[in-house]
Write a protein that binds this DNA or RNA. Structure first.
Lengths: 342, 342
DNA sequence: AGGCGTTTCGCAAACGTTTCCGTATTTTAA
DNA sequence: TTAAAATACGGAAACGTTTGCGAAACGCCT
């Protein structure tokens, strides 16, 4: 656990003062090129590594960004984080990553833990239980850099990155209608979520545009436990007024639907067509039948979040993060699960 | 960005010295119960949050653990991290998470970044390219707490958590033989990896025990790019001496195999039976046909790693992490992909 | 009453940086 | 030739904690 040499020892070795060595390593104009060379080479020789905490304490920044997401076992969130890491890593930033497991109490706890400056910024997607957002509002009011993606808080005036939820859901629903569906259901997580609201709007408007009346019994709000979701979907599929098409607003509910279908005689796409927001493309093609997907630009969303934050954190006098919603379009890939039978 | 009150301000408010306040908050025996009450209540009132960097600088520990893994889009690694987070979170530890993307240069860079004490410990799974382990050896020689899981470094004398790779592969291969396979192939990532070595041994020994000769042409070493893997597997499946059974040592290669099979006339399980190490149980059941899996106790592995580390980091005078390999058994779940046709 | 131990608290150093300021030396300008 | 300016570096404070040490105040016993 012996941390190597520190600045003072390095300075002693060079017969220079710590301040000079510090400046030399930070490439200050006050130091001659000659001594810079000497200092740098000696630092490498002794493998000097500056203590990050001393530096953070002094500079009041941590070179660390926190990411808070509702669940880890999700290709979407994994890809977003890959995108974030791609750009933050290039700038020497580290990533603290937290999963709330869709638990708002845990989310609050994490946010409170981060209020002491351990991270320079937070980029997050709220839990499905989050309706009271006071913990997030407080964070933002303190001037703490906060960015949302996907599951956003509209009421907090900062930058949010989403996909074109409304249009994608609209187009996806329209696609089902064009494929002959007339009784189209909608699968969602909590109605509190920004994404379900927007996607639901798109779904409803597409129905309306086609002159179809929405049926409340076909709209299913699911919970966290996979088994229960499968049962609920199965019940829906076996109900009297069962759907001939489904729009799933999240990946996990599409998978739950496939599980539910397996337990019945229902055939996709003959009896039921389904389209879903879905990020795991490799899996989508392997399902039977392959799944028509609305693919969010997950990696790209992560990159954009990180780019904005890096700009805010590294440039000298940056304004606050602008209060705007930036939408990066999804892409619909039509596969067998919505193709009409011949 | 205004960090709230600090210790000095809190002390001034209470008309006490900072040292007394610090001791009171840390529940020191030197402070009377009466003033402890006062201090704690005032701290809550002013929402005092101790500066983590000042504390880390003084105490020389960061309350942070780093996790390094080869890829993020993997249900196995996601579950391991869930397990780690579950126990570290309870002890107030934070998680820095890094993905090497199977790139050993990136792995080295990350390890070097962590040598300055930013994390109190590292738990990692090495990249498939890692053959030179000098960066890891150096870390361990410095006394830095280091734990491996799954893809381990045998030669570094610390604690490693794995599953019973040899036995699982042996049993899995034996299962294929019992189901009638005679030409069993093996899919692997780099031969450098501990897991492929062990699983390969199990595979070979099971063949030998059944009196079957191993065929080198049936043993495929895959790369990082999914497309190429699919092509390579397809070529294998269409070759003259094609396998009637496959043992896949990692999840992604089983998925690649399903993709490859889709491009051919081959039927699973009639023409080809397949078993794979696989963590995404939900998906395994949805594949067509459903996939026989060897499921590693991913969450449990993460928990055990974290428990050991927490013990090492929080108890006062702990010995070094013992040089041992701890194996937590996998579970084989037989599904349709290995069932004999009738 | 005086000594001694216990309780309770304050002072100041320390952790390893960065940076404000001062200063000695050299260069430039008049 | 001299004053001013530029260059190159050192001393010391500061960031916010924790903790070793010292020192009051108090009670207790003999």
């Amino acid at each position: 656990m012996s941390t190597g040499v520190n600045l003072k020892e390095l300075a002693a070795e060079l017969k220079l003062s710590p301040s000079t060595v510090s400046r030399a390593l930070n490439d200050s104009y006050e130091i001659s090129e000659e001594t810079k060379k000497k200092v740098v080479s000696m630092a490498e020789k002794l493998n000097y590594q500056p203590n990050p905490f001393a530096r953070s304490l002094r500079e009041n920044k941590s070179k660390t960004i926190a990411v808070i997401m509702p669940e880890r076992m999700s290709s979407f969130f994994s890809k977003v984080i890959d995108g974030i890491e791609e750009v933050t890593h290039q700038h020497g930033y580290h990533l603290l990553i937290y999963s709330t497991h869709e638990d708002v109490e845990r989310e609050k706890k994490i946010v409170n833990l981060l209020m002491n400056g351990r991270a320079d910024a937070i980029v997050m997607s709220v839990s499905s239980q989050t309706s009271d957002i006071s913990h997030l509002a407080r964070l933002h009011e303190r001037g703490f850099p906060l960015i949302f993606f996907d599951r956003i808080c509209e009421s907090i005036p900062t930058t949010k990155f989403i996909t074109n939820d409304y249009e994608s859901a609209y187009d996806g629903t329209k696609h089902l209608i064009q494929q002959g569906c007339r009784k189209i259901g909608f699968l969602m997580l909590s109605k509190e979520l920004s994404i379900t609201r927007e996607r639901y709007r798109g779904y409803l408007d597409a129905l309306k545009a086609a002159g179809l009346a929405p049926t409340p019994s076909l709209q299913l709000t699911c919970a966290h436990e996979e088994e229960k979701n499968i049962e609920a979907i199965r019940d829906l599929l076996l109900s009297e007024d069962r759907p001939d098409g489904l729009v799933s607003s999240v990946e996990k509910l599409a998978l739950a639907t496939y599980h539910a279908v397996k337990k019945t005689d229902i055939k996709i796409p003959e009896d039921l067509k389904i389209i879903s927001f879905f990020s795991n493309l490799s899996i989508a093609g392997l399902l039977t039948p392959s799944l028509t997907t609305i693919t969010q630009p997950a990696f790209n969303i992560g990159e954009e979040c990180a780019k904005l934050l890096i700009k805010k954190l590294t440039k000298p006098r940056q304004p606050d993060l602008p209060n705007q919603v930036i939408s990066i379009p999804s892409k619909i890939t039509i596969r067998a699960s919505t193709l009409v039978e011949y």
